[in-house]
Amino acid sequence: MSHDEFAMEFIDMTKTFGEHTVLNHLNFKIHRGKITTILGFSGAGKSTLLKHILGLLFPTHGKAIVLGEDLSHLRELELREFRKKFGMLFQYAALFDSMTTFENIAFPLREFTKMSEAEIKQKVEDLMESVGLAEHATYRLPSELSGGMRKRVGLARALALEPEIMLYDEPTTGLDPITTKMVNDLIKSTSERNKAKKMTSVIISHDIDATLKISDYVAFLEKGQVVEHLPTEEFRKSQNPIIRRFLEL
């Protein structure tokens, strides 16, 4: 696999939990430097796939190759080191509730870099500005922030270490239309800003309208298999009955 062209490749990947098969001989590649959305109904295997990308789960059969590495060959410590190449925005942002906005964003910098406090302060300010966070939010706790602001803080934290792959887990689920648009714009602008670095974005979602607007590619997961993986415009025109049913909901 060309590591330059594709950020991830799943080769004949199967994952079973006891008798239950969640991913069933999955084969597909995710383009590097692009936004790919993985759509599917609940229980289709989207979250399980996400955990395979992060090396939190390993295939029962087949391979998950991420940035040229077969994750099942990495040891625990190597895997932890490897995960620093990822940034992830969780569904509810998953901010550390005992830390302020500043401390949350500074957290990965303090953990993994040798930056001075002055450099960290500057970097946090830059990140806050890039995700459109106002200065007054700096020393607020997550409980004092709105849903949209929490997402912005979560995104700034995820971007702190300049990841090669940005993962978004249901980024717009449960948000009002205005905040949904704000989050989508944020994902798009983040991807645009990091285009030179070829940052790959993977969105796990079932919010069809929101994701079609910002994605370059869409993969549709059904019963543990990718039934369609196309550029967004072609995906819209797909005649696959499962996709049509999903699009016409």
Binding site: F90, Y92, A94, L95, F96, D97, E111
Partner: peptide
Amino acid sequence: GTMKVTEQVDALEVMGIN
């Protein structure tokens, strides 16, 4: 437990922190 149910524990793991 609260950190677990609000995905804060997952956030640590994803960052590569045990």
